[in-house]
C-alpha cells in the first residue's frame, strides 16, 4: 500500500492543505501589522500632539486651566501615555458657526479636533472620528413638572452650533404639527420658558445644561432623532494615529480613568423623555 492510499479516508489527508492555509494565514496576519501611514511616527518624531479646540464649549473644553474640560483632559492623558506633549490651538470660529468649512482648520494647525465633534456619518465624511464615552442629542427643556406633549405645542428652538441633524428635527416637528419659534441665545430660551411664551425649548444637550438651573431636561426621543456619541476628530487617512488613540481610550476605560474624568465634570445623563 503506498502513502497516498494510506492517507485516503484518514484525518491526516487534510494535513498538506491545512499547512498551506496556515502558512498564508500567517503571512496575511503578519502583513496586517504593517503601519498604514506615517501619522503616528511623524508625531513621535515631533513629540507634540496639536489639538484644535474652541475657546469655550463647556464641559468639553473650557478656558479654566484647573478644569480645562472633558475632551482636553482625555487627550492630555492619552498624549502622556503615548509619550507626547499636548498643545491646544484655540480657534474662535469653532462653535460660532455650525459649518465646519468656515472654521478654516487645516492639517498644519492640528492633528485632532476637540470640543463637540459629533460622531455622525456626515462628520465622518470629513473627519475620522474616535468616539468618547459621552452622548449628545436633542433635549427638551421646560419648567419643573410634567414635560408637555410634543404634538401641537409651542416650542422654542435653539439650534446652537452643534452638528446635530437640524433637517431631521425640522421634519419631526412639522409632522407633529408643532408651533416653532427660533431662539438666538440660551438666555433668550430661558426667558421664553419662564415667561410661558413657549411650552418648552429644544436644543442640544450641552446648551441646555448651561441654562438648566431649576429647569427640567429630558431627551427628545424619536426614531428619527437618534443620540450620537461625541468624538475626537482626526484627519481622514491618519489611521495609525487614530488606532493608537482608540487603544489609549480603551485602556483608560478599562482602568477607570475615563470614569474619573467624567465624574469630575458631572457628566450625568438627562432623563429619558
Amino acid at each position: 500500500m503506498n502513502g497516498k492510499a494510506r492517507l485516503a479516508g484518514s484525518p491526516f489527508r487534510w494535513g498538506p492543505g491545512l499547512i498551506n492555509i496556515a502558512v498564508i494565514t500567517l503571512i496575511i496576519f503578519a502583513a496586517s501589522f504593517l503601519p498604514s501611514d506615517t501619522s503616528l511616527s511623524q508625531l513621535r518624531k515631533s513629540g507634540i500632539l496639536k489639538v484644535c479646540a474652541p475657546y469655550d464649549a463647556a464641559p468639553l473644553v473650557t478656558s479654566d486651566p484647573n478644569q480645562p474640560g472633558y475632551d482636553i483632559e482625555l487627550l492630555a492623558e492619552a498624549a502622556s501615555r503615548l509619550g507626547l506633549r499636548l498643545s491646544i490651538n484655540r480657534n474662535p470660529a469653532i462653535g460660532a458657526d455650525f459649518n465646519a468649512r468656515n472654521w478654516g482648520i487645516t492639517r498644519s494647525q492640528c492633528e485632532l479636533v476637540a470640543g463637540g465633534v459629533i460622531d455622525t456619518p456626515a462628520t465622518r465624511g470629513f473627519l475620522h472620528t474616535v468616539p468618547t464615552d459621552i452622548e449628545t442629542g436633542w433635549v427638551m427643556i421646560a419648567k419643573p413638572g410634567d414635560m408637555p406633549a410634543l404634538a401641537g405645542s409651542r416650542v422654542g428652538i435653539l439650534p446652537g452650533a452643534s452638528g446635530l441633524d437640524r433637517t431631521a428635527l425640522s421634519r419631526v416637528l412639522r409632522a407633529e404639527n408643532v408651533d416653532t419659534s427660533l431662539i438666538r441665545a440660551p438666555a433668550q430660551l430661558r426667558e421664553s420658558i419662564e415667561n410661558d411664551t413657549i411650552d418648552f425649548g429644544i436644543t442640544d444637550r450641552f446648551s441646555a445644561a448651561r441654562i438648566a438651573d431649576g429647569l427640567n431636561i429630558v431627551w427628545l426621543t424619536h426614531p428619527d432623532l437618534p443620540r450620537y456619541s461625541l468624538a475626537i476628530g482626526g484627519w481622514k487617512g491618519d489611521s495609525s494615529l487614530h488606532r493608537a488613540l482608540r487603544k489609549q481610550f480603551g485602556d483608560m476605560r478599562d482602568d477607570g480613568t475615563l470614569r474619573a474624568i467624567r465624574d469630575r465634570y458631572a457628566l450625568g445623563e438627562p432623563e429619558s423623555g
Binding site: T106, R107, R124, G125, W235, K236
Partner: peptide, 18 residues
C-alpha cells in the same frame, strides 16, 4: 483622499480610501 482642510474633501464618504 485624506483630509487637508476640515469641511473640504474630495472623498465625502464616511471611511478612508483603504
Amino acid at each position: 483622499f485624506r483630509g487637508e482642510v476640515y469641511g473640504e474633501v474630495r472623498f465625502v464618504v464616511p471611511y478612508t480610501y483603504v
